[in-house]
Amino acid sequence: MDSIFHEKQEGSLCAQHCLNNLLQGEYFTPVDLSSIAQQLDEEERMRMAEGGMASEEYRTFLQQPSGNMDDSGFFSIQVISNALRVWGLELILFNSREYQSLMINPINEKAFICNYKEHWFTIRKLGQQWFNLNSLLTGPELISDTYLALFLAQLQQEGYSIFVIRGNLPECEAEQILGIMRVQQQQRPRLIGEEEAQTIALGQSEMGFVVEDEVVDEDEELKRALALSRQDIDVEDEEADLRRAIQLSMQGSQAAGSAAREQREGQNETLTAEELRKRRQAYFDRQ
């Protein structure tokens, strides 16, 4: 869906992509984030200087590289937090006791950002649907409400830190369009660098999004899928029963055939003995 802003990976600028995909626009550049990082570095330097500029700790601090950015394009959680604060947005750790005690269903949130080994990406609700806006993907990935909690749990198991976004996100075109309609995804996006044969197969619908004719209850979809699965099992069971019945029938026919042959052979042996008896009797009568 063209209205969804999705910034793809360039170098190691995933923090920039994460923020822009969250805000749905080109709101931050590497220069903007570098300025925030430098400001944080200066604030840390000033705090360290309070202990004495001649101290060993201060000299060691000056020799260390910045913890808020590096030459590859990495930016720290502090940089992201300060960048979001400009928009009145706050980060809350998803698995913290304070947040978990609220017992909030994830589908009732607005967005999440996730981090693992210096890679950042956004999961955001647009309209009434959730999308994985990972910059490493070739496009947005639709996530159903029923799968969202499982997806977040999977990320946690893989070692991701997950943060809930609190506050009012800026308005965007995708939010307005998806607020009045829903879409389905015919083909899941792949990781950048993988073969993208689905793009050719899908023609104009690059990422495989189509507008739903009607709003479908995902729980009902799940129930129908389970029902169909049970029907398939029943059909398989019936087919197995039929195959066993046919096999037993064939075995019965073979057994019956064998018995008939034995009976005919027995009859043939009896008739032959009778004939021999009659012939012997006739022979004795002629004598």
Score class of each variant (00 low, 15 high):
3 S>V: 14
3 S>L: 13
8 K>M: 10
9 Q>L: 07
9 Q>V: 06
9 Q>H: 01
16 Q>P: 00
21 N>Q: 00
23 L>C: 01
24 Q>G: 02
28 F>S: 02
29 T>G: 05
33 L>H: 01
40 L>Q: 01
51 G>Y: 10
56 E>M: 09
60 T>D: 15
64 Q>W: 03
66 S>R: 00
68 N>V: 04
70 D>E: 00
75 F>C: 05
76 S>R: 05
76 S>N: 01
77 I>V: 14
90 E>M: 11
99 Y>I: 07
103 M>W: 11
103 M>T: 13
105 N>M: 11
106 P>F: 07
114 C>V: 07
121 F>D: 03
124 R>P: 04
129 Q>F: 02
136 L>Q: 07
146 T>A: 06
149 A>E: 14
150 L>W: 08
154 Q>G: 11
155 L>S: 06
157 Q>Y: 09
158 E>H: 09
158 E>Q: 15
159 G>I: 05
162 I>R: 09
166 R>V: 08
167 G>C: 03
167 G>M: 00
172 C>A: 07
181 M>H: 07
186 Q>H: 09
187 Q>Y: 12
189 P>K: 04
196 E>T: 10
198 Q>P: 09
199 T>G: 09
202 L>F: 06
204 Q>F: 12
206 E>A: 11
212 E>S: 10
214 E>C: 10
214 E>M: 12
217 D>G: 03
218 E>L: 04
220 E>P: 03
230 R>M: 10
237 D>I: 15
240 A>Y: 10
244 R>L: 09
246 I>L: 15
246 I>P: 04
270 T>G: 13
271 L>T: 06
277 R>Y: 10
278 K>S: 15
286 R>W: 12
